[in-house]
């Protein structure tokens, strides 16, 4: 057993313009792993249900948004706070060779897993240069 203490990773606000309500938008912590078949993204979005996740892929930019349900217990007031609550948002610029129709998304225990398989026709096309 070690005495090392794990600290909570910093919940950093996303680099987005401020909201009208003054609520914060956080940047979900992400793991990205690449295999031969494609890329897998794992995003931590506690408090976000599957139906509240919004994923778009437009011009190579993959945007992930998650709406958080506030967890205020009934008839109780916040007495001490170590973390803030707010929606999640993050965007990544992807390489071009993904099939947008085959992106898989799954939410379990507040973690979103995105699988982006590489498109079959993404084999590099070589252009031969002829000497004139």
């Amino acid at each position: 057993m070690t005495n090392d203490v794990t600290h909570t990773a910093d919940k950093t606000p996303a680099e987005t313009p401020e909201t009208t309500t003054g609520r914060r938008i956080y940047r979900p912590l992400t793991d990205i792993v690449e295999t031969a078949d494609g890329v897998t993204l794992t995003l931590e979005m506690p408090g976000v249900a599957a139906e509240d996740v919004d994923i778009t892929l437009e011009k190579r930019v993959l945007t992930i948004k998650g709406k958080v349900h506030a967890t205020q217990p009934e008839k109780l007031q916040l007495a001490y706070s170590e973390y803030g609550e707010g929606d999640f948002e993050r965007a990544f610029t992807m390489s071009d060779d993904f099939d947008p129709d085959k992106i898989g998304a799954q939410v379990s225990n507040g973690v979103l897993t995105l699988t982006l398989p590489r498109a079959a026709e993404a084999q590099p096309k070589k252009i031969t240069v002829t000497a004139s």
Partner: peptide
Amino acid sequence: TQPVFPAVNVWQGDEAVAITAELPG
């Protein structure tokens, strides 16, 4: 400094006390 994992929020009321924590995954 960042709190020890998991970070907790403590809620208080007349009838009960509640602790919430984010434990994704």
